[in-house]
Computed example of a mutant assay.
Amino acid sequence: MNREAFTDMLTKEGFPDAVLVTREANVAMEVHTHPFEAKALIVEGEIRIRVGDEERLYRIGDVFHLPAHEAHAEQYGPRGVTYLVGRKG
Rank of each mutant, 00 (worst) to 15 (best):
E24H: 09
V21M: 14
E13R: 10
E13M: 11
F36I: 06
M29K: 10
A68E: 14
V31E: 15
A5T: 12
E13Q: 15
H69C: 02
K39V: 06
T33Y: 02
Y58L: 07
F36N: 05
M1K: 09
R50V: 12
T7D: 08
V19L: 13
D8V: 03
R23V: 01
T7H: 01
G14I: 07
E70N: 11
F64N: 11
A40P: 02
Y58G: 04
E37H: 08
F64A: 11
E24A: 15
P67Q: 13
A38S: 14
E44H: 12
L20C: 11
N26C: 02
G14R: 07
A73M: 05
E55V: 11
Q75R: 13
R56M: 09
T33W: 01
V63I: 15
A40G: 13
K12L: 13
T11M: 00
R50Q: 15
G52A: 09
D17K: 14
T11G: 08
T33A: 05
G61Q: 01
E37P: 00
D53C: 02
I60D: 05
M29P: 00
V21R: 14
A28S: 15
A73R: 05
I60S: 07
L41Q: 09
E13Y: 04
A28Q: 08
G14H: 07
I47G: 00
I42F: 08
T11I: 00
R23M: 10
H69Q: 14
V51R: 09
R56Y: 01
A73P: 01
A25I: 01
H34L: 14
E30V: 01
L10E: 03
P35T: 06
M1L: 08
P35Y: 04
F36W: 15
A40N: 03
V31R: 10
H69S: 07
H72L: 10
A18W: 08
N2T: 05
